[in-house]
Design a protein around this nucleic acid. Sequence first.
DNA 1: ACTAGCACTCAAGGGCTGCGAGTGCTAGGA
DNA 2: TCCTAGCACTCGCAGCCCTTGAGTGCTAGT
Lengths: 335, 335
Amino acid sequence: MLDDRKLAVLRAIVTDYIRSREPVGSRAIVERHHLDVSPATVRNDMAALEDEGYIIQPHTSAGRIPTDKGYRFFVDRLSAMKPLTNAEKRAITAFLTGAVDIDDIVTRTVRLLAQVTSQVAIMQYPTMSTAVVRRVDIVPLHDSRGLLVVVNSLGKVAQRSVDLGSVNQESLAVLRDRLNESVAGLGPSQAAKVLGDLPANLTPEVRGIAVEIVSSLLDILATDQPTRIAVAGINNLAQFSNEFETSIRPVLDTLEEQVVLLRLLGEASTEVMVRIGQENDYANLSSASVVASAYGVDDTWAGLGIVGPTRMDYPSTMASVRAVARYVSQILAEG
Amino acid sequence: MLDDRKLAVLRAIVTDYIRSREPVGSRAIVERHHLDVSPATVRNDMAALEDEGYIIQPHTSAGRIPTDKGYRFFVDRLSAMKPLTNAEKRAITAFLTGAVDIDDIVTRTVRLLAQVTSQVAIMQYPTMSTAVVRRVDIVPLHDSRGLLVVVNSLGKVAQRSVDLGSVNQESLAVLRDRLNESVAGLGPSQAAKVLGDLPANLTPEVRGIAVEIVSSLLDILATDQPTRIAVAGINNLAQFSNEFETSIRPVLDTLEEQVVLLRLLGEASTEVMVRIGQENDYANLSSASVVASAYGVDDTWAGLGIVGPTRMDYPSTMASVRAVARYVSQILAEG
DNA sequence: ACTAGCACTCAAGGGCTGCGAGTGCTAGGA
DNA sequence: TCCTAGCACTCGCAGCCCTTGAGTGCTAGT
């Protein structure tokens, strides 16, 4: 049905349209891509491609532009990721070295990604779910307030404000040691099991306060901060103001919805995921595309990616997203 | 020079223009604000106001719109902050109760502010500078990597990845205890002084590792995370796409510049600060206004505020910003 | 000091026109 | 059977002109 020349025509339309944002006509194709046929022949091919739903005409006397389906076909079958230039690789390493902690890594990565792709970058903070607890601490602050601090093996720190009542320092130290003995080295779910029985085994004076602290601790382990997302490069959207069908409004709305972003990134695998226009489950993103990939080490994975107009340079963007995901994984693995 | 009626005319122009975004004509003023004079009289007043630079005509046959100077006069002399409705007050308290730690407070506050004002909200994380160190901990992670964790009296947790070499657990515990004895209860600058002499007083086997850890600790105390800013409600900008002189682009650019935002918020005092259009030192904000206030407890203050078009409802916005700053200060004071 | 009246200005919107890019179709050639 | 040349057709776009109407500044009169 689609012979080689038709595929070449489709590829030409997609690449030219991505470059120029102008509907692509039959003459332009034969000229720019030296197909050795006449425009009339290309027109016949275009008619066929239009019948199949890969391209449309914005109006009768205009050239063709790709549909979502056309982009999809292009991404799946007609393009290869464009390898990064050495300058880009150097920029990536330069940007990511010198990060001091995991928050810093995320902040730097998301900015880097925004800069490299000239799109809006989003990145999920690594989850703790497969990490194990390394340290639990209870720090008195002032009056009866204190802070419960949990450090996990990824170097992620979680904290929760707690009420310590009038418990004395020694009891607190005892409780802390018991907590550490119990849960250090355990994953969240195992830790939660162990913690359930803990208060019963404590001396009465500690027990009162222990109940609240254990419940806060369980809370930390359960919620596991899956809700945090870093965003950067929103200013890059402005250049596409008239790119999106109506306005950039719905896209901006989506970027404020952490839950939606999380679900988007949740679908990323270690290879590059691309969602084009209507393929997104969210009406707000129906004229946007999402390119995402998972990053992480061992069994701990989270997502990062970009959001942009459907008319984007998929080969380059996909390559950038994948490269950044790999570099940041590597950095996480190293320390 | 400016008699009462002229002031009333200016006030009418500002309020009507804020409402309708249409240039305000002389007839509209006498009708909507029952000044008991004729349009012709108002026209004379308008000519005077224009001479003084408070209003301009976008084109010859149009009504008048306020200049930055006109807004400034309005804010300083012609308006009072609009008290919040009970519903708004309830929304604020509802939104802020249940915050679990300081990060959570900031996240919630900045979203709240964006929602209440329908503008872009920005908020500086509280600085540690006047807080005292409560706890220092060193948590081994894997291989030779570890995490240095510092908790301060505000409940703020800072961490830094460190290389522990092959030091054993006991030495680490010793070092940790010594660090806590030395700096607990001290502010950053005092702590830094004490820390300088510490390694010399340690046993040789601990000393090697201590040097690096102390330097990381000093780093944490010095950098003090003043660089973090939370932003929310960028989608609110979209409704003003054609509000800003050229586009929302420069404003979006500014919002990506943490340094600029920090300097903006740094100028906030405990009363409400308003910067209108060209009053901002940044060309990117020349058609935007910033409303900000300081929040905090005791000697620890940071800034929060909003960024929006110069055509904004100053009385309400100022009231909201002030109210939110006060509520969040109160919450910080309580726990 | 205010007002009525009037001539003037100018942005915005509607209708009209010519231009040109691009198409679909058909007939003819390899 | 596939490709091409030629041609009539479509339609968005830009430019132009005109009308409309809101709003002004000025002047003479109360």
